[in-house]
Amino acid sequence: MKMQPAISTVNLTKRFGGVIATDGVDLSVSSGEIRCIIGPNGAGKSTLFALLCGIHAPDGGEILLGGRDVTRLPAFRRVRLGLGLTFQTNRAYHNLTIAQNLEIARRRNSARVDSDALRRYQHAIGLFELDQLTDLPARALPHHQLQWLEIAMVLAGGPDVILLDEPTAGMSPEETMQTASVLRTLNGMGLTIVVVEHDIAFVREIAHRVTVLHEGRIFAEGSVAEITAHEDVRNIYLGRA
């Protein structure tokens, strides 16, 4: 029996004027997978991310979350259906304390936070070393921990799938590896993870499968080994294709 994909798109298309930023993308991420989406600058990663989380509306195609069509739903409805997301720039509430950040993130009356999700959240708080710092304003945190705080906030909503846009940007190699290790642990606890990423070292650490975008289309897809061995992928990264 084939498992239902956690998140998928069918022929997803988005144009900005004459530019086709997303061109008929068919993406399918299985439940329990860690998928990395890579591609050179301008490949359409950010647009795809914005389409998946509901910030942009697509011009064509469908987005399915756990088999349910969410193409026309606003971002907050997708979140309520089990999607979590962090942005390229950190958007934790920098002027509020860590406790306040997490309190806002724990939605009242959220039917989503079952015991698995709660376990993941509590585990992440510990791994990210946030549990001791609750009265500190978020802006006092070092950059990497601010990124972690935002991931923890997203987990507080009890998502099944999280989308992370360059979660390790600006982190040192050690911090990047630590982040990778926490994400692998959370994945082991049942969380599906989709990462839009530049940093190939990080991708090697975590990806089960890699999707390469190029000029708005899926250019290649496969395991890390397959993708890094792929001649054409190397070429587009070096600007030869």
């Binding site: 989380c53 910030i55 606003p74 971002a75 907050f76 979140v79 309520r80 997301l85 942005f87 958007r91 934790a92 509430y93 920098h94 002027n95 509020l96 306040q100 309190e103 806002i104 993130a105 939605r107 009242r108 959220s110 906030m153 997203v154 909503g157």
Partner: peptide, 24 residues
């Protein structure tokens, strides 16, 4: 109350608050 916390969250960052699942 929680309502006030959401007010402040909206003031600080509308998009973040919406993408935490609130109908801003």
């Amino acid at each position: 109350a929680h309502f006030g916390k959401i007010m402040i969250a909206i003031r600080e960052d509308v998009l973040r608050t919406e993408t935490l699942g609130y109908d801003v």
